[in-house]
């Protein structure tokens, strides 16, 4: 299947009067991992957060242009933000489990979206999600213990399981490993690699090696503009634009 999971057309983004994205055009193919790279403040996180309208929470934030998830224009007046966020899951920079038990964390999306008719279905989804996130074996005996007692890396994988439980089409990951140690980071990367067979993953990362290791395609941003987008191998070996080359060779950023 080589469809388009998301497409962005002429996207401009403003925080109040400050413009942070300029005419971004991008297509996100289905399956596989797309990485957003670029120096701090280049707008990559803002763009990621415009794909599930998390930016709506910031007062004064405004977007022009078109963002399509599947065939749905998500910024059209009257668009259903709730069902959008069910289709587009998100994992954040800092792990953010709820102060509930492990099971309740995974079950939260199931509960609010009414995805399980009975307990057995719910428990099955919890197990499947935790298995997908590679956490099941570590937590199956303490599902009812507080999630905040887990290690940082486990918490982040729990957040991935929580996002997977509602079966999104797209999984957005905003620097998901930046607060983790190298071993936990490797686990997350491994996991992303497994999940890309089933989900479309868009990952924002500061870590160029990480982008090179895990992603199939890479988009490079600089000062709010999409400079270059293409196969990860090509971006890292034969970038077309001089800015891209300067960035990946470490001349700035």
């Amino acid at each position: 299947m080589d469809g388009i999971a998301a497409s962005l057309r002429n996207v401009n983004f403003f925080y109040g009067s400050q413009q942070v994205l300029f005419d971004v055009n991008l297509e996100v193919p289905e399956r596989g991992i797309l990485a957003f790279i670029g120096p701090s403040g280049c707008g990559k996180s803002t763009l990621l957060r415009s794909m599930n309208r998390m930016n709506d929470l910031i007062p004064g934030a405004r977007l022009s242009g078109e963002v399509r998830i599947g065939d749905e224009d998500i910024y059209r007046p009257g668009a259903d933000v709730i069902s959008l966020r069910r289709k587009v899951g998100m994992v954040f920079q800092r792990s953010n489990p709820f102060p509930f038990s492990i099971a309740e964390n995974v079950a939260y999306g199931i509960k609010i979206n009414r995805l399980a008719r009975d307990r057995a279905t719910r428990d099955a989804i919890i197990e499947r999600s935790l298995r997908s996130a590679g956490l099941w074996d570590e937590v199956k005996d303490r599902l009812h213990r507080p999630a905040l007692a887990l290690s940082g890396g486990q918490q982040q994988r729990l957040c991935i399981a929580r996002a997977l439980a509602v079966e999104p089409d797209i999984l957005l990951m905003d620097e998901p490993a930046s607060a983790l140690d190298p071993i936990a980071t490797a686990r997350i990367e491994e996991l992303a690699n497994e999940l890309k067979e089933r989900f479309t993953i868009v990952i924002v990362t500061h870590n160029l090696q990480q982008a090179a290791r895990v992603s199939d395609r890479t988009s490079f941003f600089l000062m709010g503009k999409l400079i270059e987008s293409g196969e990860t191998r090509q971006i890292f070996s034969k970038p077309v634009r001089k800015e891209t080359e300067d960035y990946i060779t470490g001349r700035f950023g």
Partner: peptide, 22 residues
């Protein structure tokens, strides 16, 4: 923490669900 609210919203919670349940 703000990130917990964001987690709820990102799962498709409404404002009320976020306030009451998280």
């Amino acid at each position: 923490p703000r990130v917990q609210r964001e987690a709820a919203y990102a799962l498709g919670a409404t404002r009320w669900e976020t306030i009451w349940q998280v």
